[in-house]
C-alpha cells in the first residue's frame, strides 16, 4: 500500500534528553505521503507534529534532541543514513519547509530578492543575474504584485501575509517534490490566512508537489487536506481520508477536538461547548496505557494497563483506541 509513497516514515522516535528526563516528543510515528497529495498533521501543542516535520529534514537540535529510532525514506533514499552534505542538498531543493513566523525565518538585513536568489544559487550553479530573474519570477508566482519593485525591499517593509508569500516563493524556487508547511497561516489574520491557503493549494496543483500541512486548526485541515493524521502525545491516534475523519471520527480525542470547536451555525446559548477535560499532557509523566485515557470520557478499565495499537478499523481509517 505504501510502495507508491514519496515519503515514508516508519516508527520514528525523536527524543529530547533534558535535565528533567527524556521527553519522548515523537514516539513511534508512521506515515506516508504520496506524490501530489496533501497530508494533514493535526494536534495540539506538544503533540509532536512539528518535531516529526523537523525530524524528516534532520533539523532536530542535537543536543538535546535526537532521532533514536525508525526510518525515513524519501524517494527510495534513507534520509537518516545520508551524510550531512547530502541531506543539505535535499533541504530546500527536493523537500522544502515553511514556518509559522515568516519574520524570524527571513534575514532582516538582506532584501527579499537577495534571499530568494541566494537560495537558488545555493543549490544550482546559475549566474547572479539569472538567480535574480528567477527570484522575480518566484515572487510573481506567489502573486506578489509588482515583483520587480518588491524584490528590492527588506522583510520589515512587507506585511505578514506578504512575508509568508516570500517564504513560499523561497521554498518553491527549486521545485520541491514535497513541501512541509508548519502552521503556515497561524500567525496571519483570517482574511490573509484564506489568501495564503488558496495560494498554496493553487501552487500545489500547478507544480504537482506533495504537501505536508501541519496545523492545530481542524478547519484548515478540512479545507485543504486529502488525508489526515491526528497526533496526541507523540503518537498518531487516528489516520483517515479527510471526509471520513470529519464524518465519522473514531478516536475519542478526535471527537473531542471536533466538538470543542465553536460553530458559527449554532446560536448563543444553543450549544454548550463540549470541552476535553484535563490538561495537555506532560510528556514526562505519560501514563503506561492509552495516553489519552486520563482525559477520555469513554475510558474503561482496559485502557490503562496497555497502550492500544493503531488498528485499521475500516479500509484506510486507522485509530489507536480499543473502543473503535
Amino acid at each position: 500500500m505504501r510502495n507508491d509513497s514519496l515519503l515514508t516514515v516508519e516508527g520514528l522516535q525523536t527524543h529530547f534528553f533534558t535535565e528533567e528526563g527524556v521527553v519522548r516528543a515523537v514516539d513511534g510515528v508512521t506515515l506516508s505521503v504520496r506524490p501530489g497529495e496533501t497530508l494533514g498533521l493535526v494536534g495540539e501543542s506538544g503533540c509532536g507534529k512539528t518535531v516529526t516535520a523537523l525530524s524528516i529534514l534532520r533539523l532536530i537540535p542535537d543536543p538535546p534532541g535526537r532521532i533514536v529510532g525508525g526510518t525515513i525514506s524519501f524517494d527510495g533514499r534513507d534520509l537518516l543514513r545520508l551524510p550531512e552534505e547530502e541531506i543539505r542538498k535535499i533541504r530546500g531543493s527536493s523537500i522544502s519547509m515553511i514556518f509559522q513566523e515568516p519574520m524570524t525565518s527571513l534575514n532582516p538585513v538582506f532584501t527579499v530578492g537577495e534571499q530568494v536568489a541566494e537560495g537558488i544559487r545555493h543549490h544550482q550553479k546559475v549566474s547572479r543575474r539569472e538567480a535574480w530573474d528567477r527570484a522575480i519570477e518566484g515572487l510573481r508566482r506567489v502573486k506578489i504584485a509588482d515583483p520587480v519593485r518588491r524584490v528590492r525591499e527588506y522583510p520589515h517593509q512587507l506585511s505578514g501575509g506578504m512575508r509568508q508569500r516570500v517564504m513560499i516563493a523561497m521554498a518553491l524556487a527549486l521545485g520541491p517534490r514535497l513541501l512541509i508547511a508548519d502552521e503556515p497561516t497561524t500567525a496571519l489574520d483570517v482574511t490573509i490566512q484564506a489568501q495564503i491557503l488558496e495560494l498554496l493549494l493553487g501552487l500545489q496543483e500547478e507544480m504537482k508537489m506533495a504537501v505536508m500541512l501541519i496545523t492545530h486548526d481542524l478547519g484548515v485541515i478540512a479545507e485543504t487536506a486529502d488525508r489526515v493524521l491526528v497526533m496526541y502525545a507523540g503518537r498518531v491516534v487516528e489516520e483517515a481520508v479527510v471526509k471520513d475523519l470529519f464524518d465519522n471520527p473514531l478516536h475519542p480525542y478526535t471527537q473531542g477536538l471536533l466538538e470543542s470547536l465553536p460553530r458559527l451555525e449554532a446560536g448563543k446559548g444553543g450549544r454548550r461547548l463540549t470541552a476535553i477535560p484535563g490538561l495537555v499532557p506532560n510528556l514526562l509523566e505519560l501514563p503506561v496505557g492509552c495516553k489519552f485515557a486520563p482525559r477520555c470520557s469513554k475510558a474503561v478499565g482496559e485502557c490503562w494497563p496497555t497502550e492500544p495499537e493503531l488498528r485499521e478499523i475500516r479500509p484506510g481509517h486507522w485509530a489507536r483506541c480499543i473502543l473503535a
Binding site: 534528553f17 533534558t18 527524556v22 543536543p63 538535546p64 535526537r66 533514536v68 529510532g69
Partner: peptide, 18 residues
C-alpha cells in the same frame, strides 16, 4: 547500543547542568 548512547547523552546533558 542505542540505549547506551541515550545514556551517554543523558549523562552529558546532566554534565551541562553541572
Amino acid at each position: 547500543e542505542r540505549q547506551r548512547q541515550n545514556g551517554r547523552r543523558y549523562g552529558r546533558r546532566l554534565g551541562g547542568r553541572w
